[in-house]
Design a protein around this nucleic acid. Sequence first.
DNA 1: TGCCTGATGTTCT
DNA 2: GAACATCAGGCAC
Length: 190
Amino acid sequence: MAELHDYFALLHAPDAARRLLGCELIRTLNGQEARVRIVETEAYHQTDAASHSYNGRTQRTDVMFGPAGHMYVYFTYGMHYCCNVVTGPEGEGSAVLIRAVEPLGGEELLRMNRPKSGVELTNGPAKLCQALAIERQLNGHDLAQVPLRLELRPALRPNAIVETPRIGISKAVDVPWRFYIAGNPYVSAQ
DNA sequence: TGCCTGATGTTCT
DNA sequence: GAACATCAGGCAC
């Protein structure tokens, strides 16, 4: 399915971050399926000091410079994974961090990986990775394929999207590249 | 409810 | 050797 790759290859990271809100991820694991909706994102780009790709292509950031529509998974703080959707043309280091998702189905599967209830299940970048069992083996994964698929949904109305500076970073803190769905309880800080 | 801190590994300088 | 796109638990108020 080249559609997904081509679509995100044409989008600049902040546009892709907006466009990903409301889209759905389908995770297949042990014959079960869970479906979640993306409700909070952050854009990163190689021209941006807060981005992993800012210092050029390295072994770690290689996936960010690869084809769009794939997943960049990185390990941080010694115990957490975070996941991004690669965007932009090949050779450009840009991606969208998924910061929060809302469960739509298969919550049993999510809770098996992360025994929490309510918004605590998926209201943070490392939390949703744990719930969806996203680890290093999914780094570089093609999001058009099982066991983790991205489904596009109609773009949200601009007035349903809130734009703010990003969270948890120390550089380029004024760049307003964090986006979330207004009023959604799974958003980490509104 | 909100601040502070410890846990812990990978990456880059 | 320091920084790090985090989280959870403990403690003070």
